[in-house]
């Protein structure tokens, strides 16, 4: 199995952003619901020997929280969680997130599951990495139909941080809170600035030549497909079977 899966590429791109030396340190990372790629990226960072504490909200055995799930939000409220991951059914060019649905409130067009903790976590973590594999104009829109969590806040509203970056199935965007815009950081092999522009409903900045997102190394792939898959099998069996080819126990 040598072919690199898109999920593996996204996972490794997420891991590089976690370790980004220009971002605030990630000593304690939390991963929420429905986030197999962020969970795998965190495991990769940890299994590469970096000192990081992982709190995986949906881990059944050995769950880190002994006060129920509210403990995640209490920890984050205090500033003890350095990094969180969020996705969205729609994400716009100002990093506003819509996890509620399209059309009139509360999602009378297509209803998404709901906002989860986004309206709190996005404000209270020093940095958030956004991820969404589907990179199409219906996901990356000029303006979201409904705001679950705003990308930036006016002065005077308490907020510890914003999005750091957005990783998609086509590229990596960097977010600039000062101007509330994304810039294109790298494109995955097979993509170009133009193909990304065609698939994106919002305007973004491009500075100079945009490099390709690097391939995962053989060492990274071996970690993902072996020990990291082992760690994730209980929480994300469908993902592990589909991406890593792991057979589910009967």
């Amino acid at each position: 199995m040598t072919e690199i899966k898109l999920e593996e590429r996204i996972t490794v791109a997420l891991a590089k952003l976690i370790l980004d030396p220009s971002a605030p340190p990630a000593r304690h990372i939390a991963v929420g619901a429905a986030s197999p790629m962020p969970a795998a990226a965190c495991w990769l960072v940890k299994k590469q020997g970096n000192p990081v504490r992982l709190s995986l909200l949906h881990k059944r055995s050995g769950n880190p929280f002994t006060e129920g799930t509210r403990e995640l939000f209490d920890l984050t409220g205090q500033g003890r969680i350095d990094l969180f991951f969020l996705g969205g059914g729609q994400i716009d060019g100002s990093a506003n997130l819509n996890l509620v649905g399209t059309g009139e409130w509360p999602g009378m067009g297509v209803r998404f599951p709901g906002s989860f903790g986004s309206a709190f976590m996005y404000f209270m973590t020093p940095r958030t990495i956004l991820f969404r594999e589907e990179h199409t104009p219906r996901v990356f829109v000029e303006k979201v139909d409904n705001i679950s969590a705003p990308g930036v806040s006016p002065p005077g509203v308490f907020r510890r941080g914003t999005a750091q970056a957005l990783v998609t199935g086509r590229c990596v965007f960097r977010f600039h809170p000062d101007r509330a815009r994304f810039s294109l950081e790298s494109v995955h092999p097979g993509e170009t600035v133009e193909s990304v522009r065609d698939a994106t409903g919002f305007a973004f900045d491009v500075a100079g030549d945009v490099p390709f997102t690097p391939d995962p190394t053989p060492e990274e792939l071996a970690l993902l497909r072996g020990p990291i898959c082992d760690e994730m099998m209980e929480t994300y069996p469908e993902f592990c079977t589909r991406v890593f080819g792991r057979k589910q126990a009967a």
């Binding site: 409220g77 509620v100 409130w105 509360p106 906002s115 309206a119 709190f120 976590m121 996005y122 404000f123 209270m124 409904n146 705001i147 679950s148 969590a149 705003p150 806040s153 006016p154 509203v157 308490f158």
Partner: peptide
């Protein structure tokens, strides 16, 4: 009280 939420349509609704 709770932090966050300001600017979200959750709050607006």
């Amino acid at each position: 009280p709770l932090r966050g939420l300001i600017g979200s349509d959750i709050l607006a609704n």
